[in-house]
């Protein structure tokens, strides 16, 4: 049994162009969300009203907006304010995912940092650490253990949400799939079920082990 002729070029394009961009975008969004989110979440534990209010607003805005709307704002509205704020589709998508993801991470970090007993803070201070050193070398390394399960869960959500970038035409897996469906339809062949079905299978194969891992980490920590 051999595959029909249309399959090979479609699969090659979707994997080499689409999946590659999906994975790249996921990695950038994960690292960006972690860096921004952990910083903001740690700063949120400082009892200083103005910074708390600003970070709270950041979290509630980017968690409250649908990611699609955030990406539209970055891609369409920012260039209307200033031409220097013009981004290509993949960059605009990465920024949108980081704004949303960092809000999630900040909220989780606040809880994780808050769960570290105050004796740890006092002991670090007694050893001569300032605020930055205390958090960087004593508090955060312990908080990261608690942060691991929600971070794996976030990675699953980030990977799935990269498909939203399709609406502004960034060539991730779903966009490359749509281009191939349209090309084949134009040539008189209809294969949307096979092609979008393959997209579902690829996402499932990546996500399922990760959701299992997140559940396992959560159980082990509890």
């Amino acid at each position: 049994m051999s595959l029909p002729d249309w399959v090979e070029p479609v699969a090659r394009y979707m994997l080499e162009e689409g999946l590659a961009n999906t994975l790249k975008l996921s990695a950038i969004a994960l690292v960006g969300s972690a860096l921004v989110g952990i910083t903001l979440g740690t700063l949120l534990t400082i009892r200083f009203l103005p910074t708390r209010a600003l970070i709270r607003l950041y979290i509630e805005v980017w968690r409250g907006l649908p990611i699609l709307v955030t990406i539209f704002i970055i891609f369409f509205a920012l260039p209307a304010i200033s031409t220097s704020l013009r981004f290509d589709a993949l960059t605009a998508g990465a920024i949108g995912l980081i704004l949303w993801g960092s809000a999630q991470v900040a909220e989780a970090t606040r809880g994780a940092v808050g769960s570290i007993p105050r004796e740890q803070h006092e002991a670090a201070s007694a050893l001569g650490f300032g605020w930055v050193g205390r958090h960087l070398f004593v508090i955060l390394p312990q908080a990261l253990r608690r942060l691991l399960p929600p971070m794996v869960g976030l990675l699953v959500n980030i990977i799935q949400n990269t498909t939203i970038v399709q609406v502004i035409g960034a060539p991730e897996l779903l966009e490359t799939a749509e281009r191939q469906v349209e090309r084949l339809t134009f040539e008189g062949e209809e294969h949307p079920i096979e092609i979008y079905g393959a997209v579902m299978v690829v996402f499932f194969v990546i996500s399922f082990p990760l959701t299992r891992l997140a559940a396992y980490l959560e159980r082990r920590l509890a």
């Binding site: 799935q160 498909t163 779903l174 997209v199 996402f203 499932f204 996500s207």
Partner: peptide, 13 residues
């Protein structure tokens, strides 16, 4: 199946 595939792909389907 639903949790591990993007909702946008489900809509396309």
């Amino acid at each position: 199946v639903i949790r591990n595939t993007p909702i946008l792909v489900q809509i396309f389907m």
